[in-house]
């Protein structure tokens, strides 16, 4: 995979140097809450291999978004270390596109901030839009795009960072089921085409199993790694596949067990 990405100088160097896309070692995070300091993440250790697709699954309060923010470098861990292969790209539940720019210019801004020369930005932005199958959307304003199209532009903008690691924070949670299903296919396709590593946060068990090579279940309050599953079901999968359903049932049982523990005291 590292050889396939030799197009980008700095990142590719890093990719050959480090055997992981993200390395999270004994990371804890606590926030000052109304009842004193509250431990949100407790001793998380997790590696994401280059090219690997990992989903972080958990009920609310498991700190999965907090963990993603830490990996993205938007916040610092209270303890432990996080290493990433270059600066990761991040996608949110909200598209977070800048409404004062067109779809194409949003992507070009990412390219500009990455240091891409002016003349190369437009063709590159158009190539990325084509990758997410939105070749006609360059000049469109954000409000002219549907929810699914906005998330695809956001994905293209994230890809414009040319990062080896893509962090996704429930990016499809706000979409309707049909669009989400299509975007699952789309994300799988792009992931396989690009060889990116993906760390994908969700509370949707089926989504986690549908997409990932590895599903990591976090317990809640504080967030700890409860269990991990390696998903051997061959891609492309569908959300209604029996194998996906079976594993989802197993994971859901485990997740419910985790949640029940909180009601017992």
């Amino acid at each position: 995979m590292a050889t396939a990405t030799a197009t980008t100088d700095k990142v590719a160097e890093d990719a050959t140097a480090v055997p992981y896309a993200a390395r999270i070692e004994h990371v804890s995070k606590s926030f000052a809450g109304p009842a004193g300091r509250q431990l949100v993440l407790d001793d998380i250790t997790l590696d994401v291999a280059p090219g690997e697709f990992v989903t972080l699954l958990g009920a609310s309060g498991c700190g999965k978004s907090t963990l993603l923010n830490l990996v993205a470098g938007l916040d610092r861990p209270s303890a432990g270390t996080i290493g990433t292969d270059g600066r990761p790209a991040l996608m949110f539940q909200e598209h977070a596109l800048f409404p004062w720019l067109t779809a194409g210019k949003n992507i070009e801004l990412a390219l500009k901030l990455r240091g891409v020369a002016k003349a190369e930005r437009r063709p590159e932005a158009e190539r990325l839009l084509e990758l997410v199958r939105l070749q006609g959307a360059y000049g469109k304003r954000v409000h002219e795009l549907s929810g699914g199209m906005r998330q695809r532009v956001a994905l293209a903008r994230a890809l414009a960072q040319d990062s080896r690691l893509l962090l996704m924070d429930e990016p499809f949670a706000a979409l309707d089921a049909i669009t989400r299903d299509v975007l699952h296919d789309e994300l799988t396709r792009i992931w396989r085409e690009t060889g990116l590593s993906v760390l994908f946060v969700t509370h949707n068990v089926r989504e986690a199993v549908r997409l990932a090579q590895r599903v990591v279940l976090l317990s809640s309050r504080p967030g700890r790694i409860a269990r991990e599953w390696t998903v051997g079901i061959p891609q492309p999968r569908r959300i209604e596949d029996t194998a996906v359903a079976e594993l989802s049932v197993e994971i859901t049982e485990e997740l419910r067990g985790e949640i029940r523990r909180h009601g017992q005291h």
């Binding site: 396939a4 197009t7 084509e130 070749q135 890809l159 085409e193």
Partner: peptide, 17 residues
């Protein structure tokens, strides 16, 4: 990102792609 080599050709057939 590395595998699409269509360059700037915008009218690439979607299905072929």
């Amino acid at each position: 990102m590395a595998s699409t080599d269509h360059g700037t050709d915008l009218e690439v057939d979607v299905t072929k792609n």
